[in-house]
Design a protein around this nucleic acid. Structure first.
Length: 110
DNA sequence: GGGCTGACTAGGC
DNA sequence: AGCCTAGCCAGCC
């Protein structure tokens, strides 16, 4: 059995299944994959592949609904605009009504 | 093979 | 309430 290589694949697969207008957190994905403490790996895994158009990285934020990844985007506002374009209200780089926009893979993908 | 790093999270001060 | 520290896991040098 291979190592975390599958973990990366799982992360991409989950992120791709995130519906528009919704967002999830690294911790949620990590927990869904079995690594509730491996949230950093999730973010890093995508950080290494956020360049792929198949992965809506802008729909993945931290547990606070904060757009922590905007710094890696081409522009610091690209992430926010993408989310707003999908119907998510973003204020001060944070998702408003985060609880309502939160997309839990454990509940949706279960 | 050991150590560092990282889009995190939760707890402590 | 805000800042700091510790923990965890997987890839890369």
């Amino acid at each position: 059995m291979k190592k975390g290589n599958a973990f990366f694949n799982d992360v991409y697969d989950v992120v791709r299944q995130i519906p528009a207008g919704r967002a999830t957190s690294y911790g949620a994905i990590a927990k869904y994959l079995g690594n509730n403490r491996g949230a950093r790996i999730v973010g890093w895994a995508m950080g290494s592949s956020y360049t792929q158009d198949d992965i809506p990285a802008h729909r993945v934020v931290n547990s606070q609904g904060e757009l922590t990844a905007r710094a890696l985007f081409e522009t610091p506002t690209a992430m926010q605009e993408k989310l707003e374009k999908e119907g998510i209200t973003v204020k001060n780089h944070k998702i408003q009504n985060w609880k309502e926009h939160f997309w839990d893979p454990e509940k949706e993908l279960l």
